[in-house]
Design a protein around this nucleic acid. Structure first.
Lengths: 111, 111
DNA sequence: CAGAATCCCACTCGATACTG
DNA sequence: CAGTATCGAGTGGGATTCTG
């Protein structure tokens, strides 16, 4: 689950952005976090039907490393965790929003 | 270079969008086409420094299959081709724009 | 519930060489 | 110039099992 290496010396802004959101499920995860504010692991697991447990965990780790999301652990039984956007992650809202709006329109036109 | 399989029955709009732009270099190619209107193969090759010839060709084929871009062939010597956005491809401009704007801001703040 | 660890195959994708 | 063809190493990522 390496982040892709884009050459950002040349300063291509799209490549810069991709470094953060190009992971297989990252933008979908961010989308759900934007819509639902707070998400548990199992909930994301259900939302992302085709994403394996392993993949979900890996993507969450990377998003957290990149400071886009924050993981909150509650030491209860049973174990409980949730994820929220950080302030930095929230700066991506316009990007994710643009993607979801395009997808919504596409879905409307194509059933 | 398969397009990724996201479950779009559930209608996640972000997944719908990703079906079109999640290829490794697709959004970067679209970005250059938006900025420069018309691009030749060799020009894109130079712009996308870390993208191999093979990858560039594959991504262009997929973008064309998806009707996002149009390939125009001129039977001259030497061979000449160029690529432009289709109308459908142009509907993605807000998405790509959002990505490039975020990347611009990020690059400013981080050198 | 929320993940980490292992296994392992299919596919990705770069390098190289070739074509019209 | 604008690609295609072939080869092969590397890894992405699913399935499964295990832990606290």
């Amino acid at each position: 689950m390496q982040r892709r290496v884009y050459d950002c010396q040349v300063g291509c802004p799209v490549e810069s952005t991709l470094q953060f959101i190009s992971g297989k499920w990252k933008s979908v995860i961010l989308y759900h976090l934007i819509e639902e504010k707070v998400c548990h692991f199992g909930q994301l697991k259900r939302d992302l039907k085709d994403c394996s447990t392993r993949m979900l965990a890996l993507q969450l780790v990377e998003l957290e490393k990149d400071k886009l999301i924050q993981k909150n652990i509650y030491s209860e039984e049973p174990l409980r965790t949730d994820y929220t956007l950080t302030e930095f992650g929230a700066t991506l809202i316009p990007v994710i929003r643009a993607m979801s709006e395009w997808g919504d329109r596409f879905n409307q036109l194509n059933g």
